[in-house]
């Protein structure tokens, strides 16, 4: 079986001619920018795959190569088993792309007309296309903007229209380059929900998404790759990635005053245990570092055995941001 996306030692180098300096007359030297370096990636059909990385890491470059807009300098890239270099046309039939902040279409046409125009480039019969477009306009809450000229739309409305443009052609693989860039909480939520529903609705649909919002990546993606300076530095499920930073999660209990907290020691699966009494409030604060969460049940029953009440339980897991910072060395947005 083919992977939805597969790259083998994918490398892309941009040759940048330095601007000739005025009057100096010397011919500009060529300088190379390595945007991608030996990238090996496999994305399964049906996956919602995320790409995280700092600015200039090479995310957009990778997407452009997979969308047949850019050729690799060396290495291979396959989309649904087709070589991006040799067979771009079969790829183009089954993909689409949406990037954040893009403008598309013609300002003079209405939202609906623009979408219809793009649908025609995929050979969708007009009637069918209009039906899909109307449904999606409704779903994204811009139905009232259907007859507005696109040049009058707000950034968010335009971005919703872009997302519709990407999904309306019913691609099997869609590339989303920062699809929620510059959107408000509500709009991003609508788009995120749409994306995750879309992938799960029918089997075989694949999404490759880049984002700078950690929460978005965590919430949406089945698997994530973290890319930095053109190379993949980690690739796994969000959960596993977070474990690499610290394999354990910490649980904090606030309970009634415990006379003998040491009795809680020795529960299986507990890595570390500390406690603190708060005499004023007549409470005890217990902190467990656990290997896995199956220990929770044991802990709770032992506390209850001592006749204490649990007032609150807080679990703090390492976040993706922790992962990102530990791998890339600098925080995001």
């Amino acid at each position: 079986m083919n992977y939805a996306v597969e790259t083998k030692d994918l490398t892309r180098i941009f040759r940048v001619k330095k601007r000739r300096r005025r009057r100096s007359g010397s011919k500009g030297a060529e300088q190379d920018v390595t945007a991608l370096k030996d990238v090996n990636l496999r994305i399964e059909e049906g996956e919602l795959f995320g790409l995280l990385g700092p600015n200039g890491a090479g995310k957009t470059t990778l997407i452009k190569i997979l969308c047949t807009l850019l050729l690799p300098t060396s290495g291979k890239a396959y989309v649904a088993g087709n070589d991006v270099e040799k067979d771009p046309y079969p790829i183009r039939r089954i993909i689409n792309m949406v990037s954040g902040g893009e403008t598309s279409g013609y300002g003079l046409l209405t939202t609906r007309e623009n979408l219809w125009m793009f649908s025609q480039f995929y050979g969708i019969p007009s009637k069918e296309a209009k039906k899909r477009i109307d449904e999606m306009l409704e779903a994204f809450g811009i139905w009232d903007k259907r007859n507005a000229k696109v040049r009058t739309l707000s950034t968010g409305e335009r971005q919703k229209a872009n997302v519709i443009r990407g999904f309306m052609t019913d691609p099997s693989i869609i590339f989303l380059d920062e699809p929620t860039l510059g959107l408000d909480v509500n709009a991003s939520r609508i788009i995120r929900k749409f994306i995750s529903d879309w992938v799960r609705e029918t089997s075989g649909r694949t999404v490759l998404l880049t984002t700078h919002y950690m929460m978005e990546a965590d919430e949406l993606c089945d698997r994530l790759a973290i890319i930095d300076e053109g190379g993949i530095v980690a690739c796994d499920t969000p959960r596993n990635l977070k474990r690499t930073v610290s394999k354990a999660s910490s649980l904090m209990f606030e309970v009634d005053y415990l006379r003998d907290p040491d009795k809680l020691k020795g529960i299986e699966g507990i890595q570390n245990f500390t406690y603190k009494h708060n005499g004023q409030m007549n409470r005890t604060l217990l902190t467990f570092i656990v290997q896995d969460e199956s220990a929770v049940a044991d802990i709770v029953s032992r506390i209850v055995d001592q006749g204490a009440k649990i007032h609150s339980l807080e679990k703090r897991e390492p976040t993706l941001e922790d992962v990102f910072v530990s791998l890339v060395g600098k925080g995001l947005a």
Binding site: L69, F121, Y122
Partner: peptide, 8 residues
């Protein structure tokens, strides 16, 4: 670029 990724 949107024209270029389309299959026509």
């Amino acid at each position: 670029q949107l024209y270029m990724i389309a299959p026509m």
